[in-house]
Each structure stands twice: as structure tokens, then as C-alpha cells.
């Protein structure tokens, strides 16, 4: 990968994060939504043992729903005043665009996951344990990279024309299954839910990593075509 491409990607990622710092849409709207989802799960499932056992899965479900909104926001920035079109006319490298958007999305999702993990501890009584910290962090990072790549691919497609927002969940959710499954098992092993051992979590990190790499590479190749119109 050329240095120019990486520099452009970094520039695009920094721009996205700067927009978020100024507008605070994710902090003021998406984050409260995610927290609310965590609370609503408790209404649906009732308190007691169920919540504690299901905590990792519920947390990742909340992450998945929030990802959909975050992806939409990420591309709303680009389409609000035709910026994506300007970038395309200017011939900005679509691979750099993909990597930059995905990187910014990953940073935003990691922040979100950290807060939701804290909420899972507070609301669901999911207690982290010292020996699982490394697994917890690696799971979160690899899952986030996969989600960010996946979200950017289909977010770009949905941003290509008007009236395509409703397509986003239909395209993302079925293929996000590996992330939901892998990340949930990984966090379960890290927390020791159902007396699982930490070592049981590592194959899932493997799955998440393969997913992130495969989706990331194919997304970088496909992105130029998907945002074309």
C-alpha cells in the first residue's frame, strides 16, 4: 500500500472524527440510544439470572443496532452537502476513502463498546475478571474492525442514491452474524459467564480476525464500484 493512500485515508478518518467532535451527534444521540437499548432488554427479559447470563449477547446486540445508526451518520456527513460527490469527481482514491471511513467508524465504535461494557457491568452484573482482560480487549477490537468494514461497505452503497437508507439493515444484519456470535462467545469466555474458561474464547477471536480481514480486503476492492452513483 502506497504512502499516499495511507495519508489520504488518515486525513479522511481525522476529518470524520473532527466532525463528530464538533457536532457531537454520536455522543448526544447514538450513545443514549444504545444505553436505552440495554435498559429495554431488562424490561423484556426480567431481572435475575437471565440478564447476567445473557449480558455479553445483549451488549453486542446493542452494539449491532448502534452500528447501523453510526454508519448512517457516517455517510450522512458525506451526502448532506454533496461532499461524497465532490470526492468522487476529484478522483480521490476509493480505497483510501474506504479505509479512512472504516477507521473513523472503528474508533467511534470502540468508544461506544467501552461505555456499553461498563453499562453491562452496572446494569446486568457482568463482572470482568483479571485473567480475561486481554481476551476482552482483543475480542472487542477484532469485532469492531469487522463491523466497521462491513458497515462502511454497505453504508457506501446506501449513500450512493436517495431512498436507500432502509436497505442498510437488510444488507448488514445477515452477514453480521459471525461478529455477533464470535464477539458474544469471546466476551462470555473473558467474563467467565456460565463458568466458561478464558481459553475457550481464543478460537472466536480467530474467527473475528478472519472476518475482519476478509471483509476489509473485499470492501476495499468493492468500494469504488459501490459508491459510483
Amino acid at each position: 500500500m502506497s504512502a499516499g493512500r495511507l495519508r489520504a485515508a488518515r486525513r479522511i478518518a481525522v476529518k470524520d472524527l473532527l466532525v463528530e467532535r464538533r457536532s457531537r451527534v454520536l455522543v448526544n444521540q447514538v450513545l443514549p440510544f444504545s444505553g436505552l437499548v440495554m435498559v429495554v432488554f431488562a424490561f423484556a427479559l426480567g431481572t435475575g439470572g437471565v440478564l447476567e447470563r445473557a449480558a455479553p449477547g445483549l451488549m453486542w446486540l446493542a452494539v449491532l443496532f448502534s452500528t447501523l445508526i453510526t454508519v448512517q451518520r457516517s455517510f450522512a456527513i458525506e451526502t448532506a452537502d454533496g461532499a461524497l460527490e465532490s470526492l468522487r469527481v476529484a478522483g480521490i482514491d476509493p480505497v483510501a476513502l474506504f479505509l479512512g471511513k472504516a477507521a473513523a467508524l472503528a474508533v467511534e465504535l470502540i468508544a461506544l463498546i467501552t461505555v456499553l461494557l461498563g453499562l453491562a457491568v452496572v446494569l446486568y452484573g457482568a463482572e470482568p475478571r483479571a485473567e480475561g482482560v486481554v481476551l476482552l480487549v482483543t475480542t472487542a477490537i477484532s469485532a469492531t474492525c469487522g463491523l466497521a468494514a462491513l458497515g462502511t461497505i454497505y453504508g457506501g452503497l446506501a449513500a450512493g442514491g436517495p431512498g436507500r437508507e432502509t436497505l442498510l439493515p437488510l444488507l448488514i444484519l445477515p452477514v453480521a452474524a459471525p461478529v455477533l456470535i464470535g464477539a458474544t462467545r469471546g466476551v462470555e469466555a473473558a467474563l467467565g459467564t456460565d463458568r466458561t474458561a478464558v481459553s475457550e474464547g481464543w478460537p472466536w477471536v480467530g474467527l473475528l480476525t478472519v472476518f475482519a480481514v476478509a471483509v476489509g480486503v473485499s470492501g476495499a476492492l468493492a468500494f469504488g464500484t459501490l459508491i459510483e452513483d
Partner: peptide
């Protein structure tokens, strides 16, 4: 989705090939 015939074909082909990457991963994880 709308677009010229060629663009629709290219976009669909890309989505069709992405499924080839994603489906085995889904199957493996499940």
C-alpha cells in the same frame, strides 16, 4: 436500485461476489 444498465449490473455483480466471501464465514461461525 436505479442507475444505468451497466452500473446496475456492476453493482449487483459486486454484491453477488461479496456474498461469496461472507456466506462461508457465516456458515463457519454458525
Amino acid at each position: 436500485l436505479e442507475g444505468t444498465r451497466e452500473r446496475r449490473a456492476r453493482r449487483s455483480a459486486v454484491i453477488g461476489l461479496l456474498a461469496v466471501v461472507e456466506i462461508p464465514l457465516v456458515h463457519w461461525s454458525v
